Every structure is written in C-alpha cells, then in structure tokens.
Computed example of a mutant assay.
Amino acid sequence: MNCRGCGAASFTYVDVLVRGAKGSKAVKMLVDTGSTYVVLDPTTVRGAGPLRDPVHRRAHPGG
C-alpha cells in the first residue's frame, strides 16, 4: 500500500546513557531532528545523581 499523503508518521527512538555523579541511567528518548537542545526531567534521571557539566555530543548513526 502506498502511504504517500495518508498522514501516517513514524517515530525514531534511541537508547541514551545519562551519566551522573552516582552512576548512570539508561533512558529511551524520542529523536527530534529539529531540536537544538535536550532537557531532562530530574525525576527521569534521579538514579544517576547530579549531572556533571553539560556535555555536547554528536550522534553517530549506525554505532
């Protein structure tokens, strides 16, 4: 079936490892190709402890 113009959308998620002072926590995140920054809810990453200085990383598709 050709879905062009049918309004269907797909979403891409990635598994991200958030590192903090107490350890790390795996978080599943939605990829937003139009975003510039990522904001993490404190309750989501609570187990990792306070996050260190902001880190800027580039995504490397495929590993």
Rank of each mutant, 00 (worst) to 15 (best):
M1Y: 03
M1Q: 07
M1P: 06
N2K: 12
C3I: 14
R4A: 09
G5W: 11
C6G: 07
C6T: 15
G7H: 13
G7C: 11
A8I: 04
A8Y: 10
A8E: 08
A9Q: 10
A9H: 12
A9Y: 08
S10E: 14
F11V: 15
F11Q: 15
F11W: 14
T12E: 15
Y13G: 01
Y13M: 03
Y13I: 07
D15A: 14
V16W: 06
V16D: 02
L17I: 15
L17A: 14
V18R: 00
V18H: 04
R19M: 05
G20V: 04
G20A: 11
G20W: 02
G20H: 07
A21R: 13
A21G: 06
A21S: 13
K22C: 10
K22P: 03
K22I: 02
S24C: 10
K25W: 00
K25Q: 07
K25C: 01
K25Y: 01
K25D: 02
K25F: 00
A26T: 12
A26Y: 08
A26Q: 11
A26W: 09
V27M: 03
K28V: 04
K28W: 07
K28A: 02
K28G: 00
V31R: 13
V31F: 05
D32Q: 13
T33W: 11
S35E: 10
S35A: 15
S35G: 12
S35H: 09
S35P: 04
T36N: 07
Y37E: 08
Y37D: 05
V38R: 07
V38H: 05
V38Q: 11
V39A: 04
V39C: 05
L40M: 07
L40R: 01
L40S: 00
L40T: 01
D41L: 02
P42E: 09
P42R: 13
P42F: 02
P42G: 01
P42Y: 05
T43E: 09
T44P: 01
T44R: 06
V45A: 01
G47E: 12
A48I: 01
G49R: 01
G49H: 01
G49I: 03
G49A: 01
P50F: 10
L51A: 05
L51G: 03
L51W: 08
R52L: 06
R52E: 07
D53L: 08
P54V: 06
V55P: 00
V55E: 09
V55C: 10
H56R: 12
R57N: 08
R57A: 07
R57M: 09
R58D: 08
R58I: 08
H60P: 00
H60E: 13
H60W: 13
H60F: 12
P61R: 07
P61I: 11
P61S: 06
G62K: 02
G62Q: 04
G63K: 06
G63E: 11
G63C: 09
G63I: 10
